[in-house]
Write a protein that binds this DNA or RNA. Structure first.
Lengths: 126, 126
DNA sequence: CGGAATCCATGACGATACTG
DNA sequence: CAGTATCGTCATGGATTCCG
């Protein structure tokens, strides 16, 4: 994912494999799923993401947004003004991912508690 | 998401965020999506995976399978015999992920070519 | 405000060798 | 067959500082 490179390691034979890999290369980045999820209900500015997800550093936010942009999944709109303003939004292509993201969200909601319990148990073993 | 870490970084506040993260923690590992995908059509033995996916090293295969097992997504059946035989299969819990995996597979099939083209273009810029 | 640049620590991952 | 152990490398990602 983890795991998982930051992204974009499409070495030639990387794609021999199953298509699941293609999809995970796009949405599997450490924060990409989350970013895409928040874009489903509309544009977001850089610092909006930081407020929504304080854990992600400025650097990683930039890197992950850039990769999503390169993959054509999101659009970056820069307003020429002072202070600067940048808005991120899903492209039409990016919107094809919405069903998957929402599906992952539902699964996460259902089984979040279970996963937390597993983690708690494992920590107790230390 | 590694990438992504190898997985399993359920630090306490990791779960504050959106449920999409929970799901990606389970299936987002570098090879997890692929392994789960191949388990959908039945049990697989250790060396079967290696044949299906020569790129993955023995070490990584072991690690990723162990994590999936710990997450309760797959079951590891050891047959006490010589030579040893181990079969991996989806648990009932793991099967709840099938729709998502299949959905990711469909998306990957549709847009694989597009993603490869992006990569090709980027390499040409070097 | 929305970054870019630099430095640095850790951990992901591969290669290789060995084993019950 | 199905792993484990050890080692080395390099990418991942955090912290900090600076900038238009």
């Amino acid at each position: 994912m983890r795991n998982r490179k930051l992204g974009f390691d499409y070495s030639s034979d990387h794609f021999e494999g199953c298509p699941v890999e293609t999809t995970l290369d796009v949405i599997g980045g450490k924060w990409k799923g989350v970013l895409l999820y928040h874009l489903i209900d509309g544009k977001k500015r850089f610092n909006e993401f930081r407020r929504l997800y304080p854990k992600i550093t400025q650097r990683m936010l930039t890197l992950q947004l850039r990769e999503l942009e390169r993959d054509g999944v999101i659009h970056r709109e820069v307003y020429k003004q002072v202070p600067p303003k940048v808005e991120y939004s899903l492209t039409e292509f990016g919107k094809t991912l919405e069903p998957i993201i929402l599906h992952m969200k539902e699964w996460g909601e259902k089984y979040k508690d279970r996963m937390v319990n597993i983690e708690t148990t494992l920590k107790a073993e230390d």
